[in-house]
């Protein structure tokens, strides 16, 4: 039982990381109509910047803002130079142009940092573990990820539903030209919004550093999982992204934890059972997506209604 709780918590933690990425992706899509494959690259940039600064200064407290700033800066220049020209284009052009950006960022990162994965140490004040239930101590760092994810979700809600900037963002999504006619610099607004989405991805990258290895290609792995989240939750809906991310995170983690033992009981050969289990658990969330699609083609919580 403690094992199951631990894995469920790990799932929630993965879910919050996915939420940060999915929220950025779905925000940008829902409001600007752009599908940004390079969201995964921004995540990678956040992680690498954190790793680099942490290695130089030895301080996570300096490294984390650096990661956020790097991702936001990269995101805003990406918007200014490339994405801005894609708003009026179809999704195919957006996909291909941002695919080109991924190739560029991945290779540039390889040139700058090499192919060896980097590791970031868990900051000392978040090191250690706390007892959750009897017989289970859970790492503080992972709890911190959950807390930060939750705080970000609330902040995002407040930003969009309760502030003037959020009102402009919602208005811009409904009728871009009308907002502009009322004297709002919609281009600047979009750049800022893209920066917010980039920062969300960067935040996920910053937090991923100490628990995952920081390497080229980390962005795309998580990007495709993020797509699953967005499809399950409903494209363009932040609430959907929240629900979808938690579902995907928990299902993925639990399958990986439970399936090998289950199959080993059913099958005679242990190694074959392990191979099958790893395959099935890797495919699990995609099957979940297929099932959701069969029942609700627009996702669990589609935007606008």
């Amino acid at each position: 039982m403690p094992l199951l709780i631990e894995q469920a918590l790990n799932g929630v933690q993965l879910g919050f990381m996915l939420f940060l990425l999915a929220a950025g992706l779905t925000l940008i899509f829902g409001i600007m109509g752009v599908i940004n494959l390079a969201q995964g690259s921004l995540y990678m940039i956040g992680a690498y910047a954190t790793a680099a600064v942490a290695a130089k200064t030895g301080s996570f407290l300096l490294a984390a803002p650096a990661g956020l700033a790097a991702a936001a800066l990269a995101g805003m220049s990406m918007e200014y130079l490339v994405v801005r020209r894609l708003y009026a284009r179809d999704h195919l052009d957006q996909v291909l142009a941002t695919f080109g950006l991924i190739l560029f960022f991945n290779q540039l990162t390889t040139i700058l940092f090499g192919r060896q994965p980097l590791f970031v140490e868990i900051p000392p004040f978040l090191n250690g573990s706390v007892p959750i239930v009897e017989g289970l101590r859970y790492p503080v760092y992972r709890l911190a990820i959950i807390a930060v994810g939750l705080a970000t979700a609330i902040a995002l809600y407040v930003l969009i539903a309760r502030t003037r900037l959020g009102m402009l963002i919602r208005a811009g999504a409904t009728n871009r030209d009308m907002v502009r006619a009322l004297g709002v610099d919609i281009r600047l607004l979009y750049t800022v919004l893209f920066g917010v989405g980039a920062m969300l991805a960067g935040l996920a990258g910053v937090m991923a550093g100490p628990i995952l290895s920081v390497q080229v290609g980390m962005g795309e792995q998580v990007l495709i999982l993020t797509f699953v989240v967005v499809v399950i939750g409903g494209v363009g809906s932040i609430r959907g992204a929240f629900v979808g991310a938690l579902v995907v995170g928990v299902v993925d983690t639990l399958l990986r934890a439970v399936l090998p033992g289950l199959l080993r009981q059913l099958m005679s050969s242990g190694s074959e059972a392990d191979a099958l289990a790893s395959g099935l658990s890797a495919m699990g969330v995609y099957m979940l997506m297929a099932i959701v699609l069969l029942i609700r083609p627009k996702g669990l919580l589609p935007a606008h209604g």
Binding site: I35, H91, I224, F227, V231, V235, L276, M283, L293, G299
Partner: peptide, 27 residues
């Protein structure tokens, strides 16, 4: 399955299913 969706969802879904088949062969 994928054609139950359209637009940007279709892009994401075809990519996701392809990734699933990729994992199938890896496993």
């Amino acid at each position: 399955l994928s054609l139950r969706t359209s637009g940007v969802q279709f892009i994401m879904i075809t990519l996701a299913f392809a990734q699933m088949i990729f994992f199938f062969f890896v496993a």
